[in-house]
């Protein structure tokens, strides 16, 4: 059991950073550059773990990244990797989709706690943007997930996966998938929904006062978290994975789709993104809900 959990975490960390490296590489090619090596994100994170931390704003400031990281880790532990229900299922027998959805918002809230204690205006601006965006993101995603729960008459991820043995949900409920995919793009925090940490506007936003180890923690949690979201999408709509190769293939396809969207569209402003999220995907999700 514990070995399983450890493997799940290490896999999430590894794949998260690998995909982040790929993201950097692909966007570099789009810009006409060579881009860094694939392992660059690992180097960054390891170097940051060896650095000093020179800031101190009281224990609340340190608690912020830790709550963030625990949110990401719990999320990934409650999502099963494979659909046989034997190996690498983590804690998913003990919790269902609703728990996962709850843990997914724990990260931003913890972040807000930490940022609130250092009083840097850019951090406060970033976190306000983040929470506003979250408001828009959650609506379509929750509607889509509720649709799936109704269709399967269960809130258990394992059951939803098992029910897709014949047709994947992406074919059975395409509208729900589209709505969930759009808000998934937003959850990833890449453009066009990257208002939170925009370096040109709010000087990396919530992370503005984090240096050294805490930045490393923040980076690692974001890597783990993005892999957790990829997993969740694969589990809910692509029928889960039968083997490791299946897992890699499915997450990779989803990931590449999101990278291309991110490289084609520019950044929305905060108001625009909330507007967009509350209109387009929400309406799609509601229409999809009618067909369930």
């Amino acid at each position: 059991m514990f070995i399983d959990l450890l493997i799940m975490l290490v896999m999430a960390y590894g794949f998260g950073f690998l995909y982040y490296g790929l993201y950097r590489n692909i966007s570099a090619r789009v810009h006409g550059r060579f881009g860094p090596s694939l392992a660059q994100s690992f180097y960054d994170s390891i170097k940051l773990f060896t650095k000093d931390t020179s800031t101190d704003f009281g224990w609340m400031f340190f608690a912020g990244p830790i709550i963030m990281a625990s949110g990401a880790i719990l999320t990934v532990l409650f999502i099963p990797y494979f659909n046989h229900g034997e190996r690498l299922v983590g804690l998913s027998p003990y919790g269902n989709l609703i728990v996962v959805l709850y843990f997914m918002v724990l990260g931003p809230l913890g972040n807000a706690l930490g940022v609130g204690s250092h009083g840097n205006p850019f951090g406060a601006m970033g976190i306000t943007r983040g929470l506003t965006r979250l408001l828009g993101l959650e609506m379509p995603f929750y509607i889509a997930v509720v649709g799936l729960m109704i269709a399967n008459e269960s809130a258990d991820i394992g059951t939803i996966m098992a029910n897709q043995a014949e047709t994947y949900n992406i074919i059975a409920h395409p509208l729900l998938f589209i709505a969930a995919f759009i808000s998934f793009l937003g959850f990833l925090g890449k453009s066009p929904f990257d208002v939170v940490g925009a370096p040109q506007e709010v000087y990396s936003g919530p992370a503005v006062e984090f240096g050294g180890k805490f930045l490393a923690l923040a980076l690692s949690q974001s890597a783990i978290f993005s892999f957790a979201k990829l997993l969740l999408m694969v589990d809910l709509f692509l029928g889960g994975a039968d083997s490791l190769w299946d897992l890699i293939l499915k997450t990779f396809v989803l990931f590449v789709a999101s990278v291309f969207v991110g490289n084609v569209y520019g950044r929305f402003t905060t108001a625009q993104s909330v507007d967009f999220l509350l209109k387009v995907p929400t309406v799609i999700a509601i229409v999809g809900l009618l067909f369930v």
């Binding site: 860094p36 800031t55 503005v208 006062e209 930045l215």
Partner: peptide
């Protein structure tokens, strides 16, 4: 070469 620009001196 692994050189990236960041926005704040903390990082």
């Amino acid at each position: 070469l692994g050189v990236v620009g960041v926005a704040t001196p903390r990082q």
